[in-house]
Amino acid sequence: MSSPLFDVWEAASASPYQPTVGKNSQFLIGSVLLFAAFILAGVFGLNRSFVNLSLLGVPASLAFGFGAVYMICAVGVYV
């Protein structure tokens, strides 16, 4: 079989897709990030100020965003 797309497939044989975080470490990464988000949110809850909103809220949101994606993948819903 020879078609242009098959040639593309053959040409890319050296670069199989590898995800940034492998399947085995998704749960660990996800839980660490979610735990970090939980702690940061807790500290923010104790002292709510505009400075803390950017100092704690932004990293907490980022940790929650990525942590949630990895945790959902780890439990089998591959988003």
């Binding site: 949110a41 949101s61 980022l62 990525f66």
Partner: peptide, 12 residues
């Protein structure tokens, strides 16, 4: 992740 981050930040 960015959409979830923005949603979380909106809550904060």
């Amino acid at each position: 992740p960015v959409v979830i981050t923005l949603g979380m930040f909106a809550i904060f």
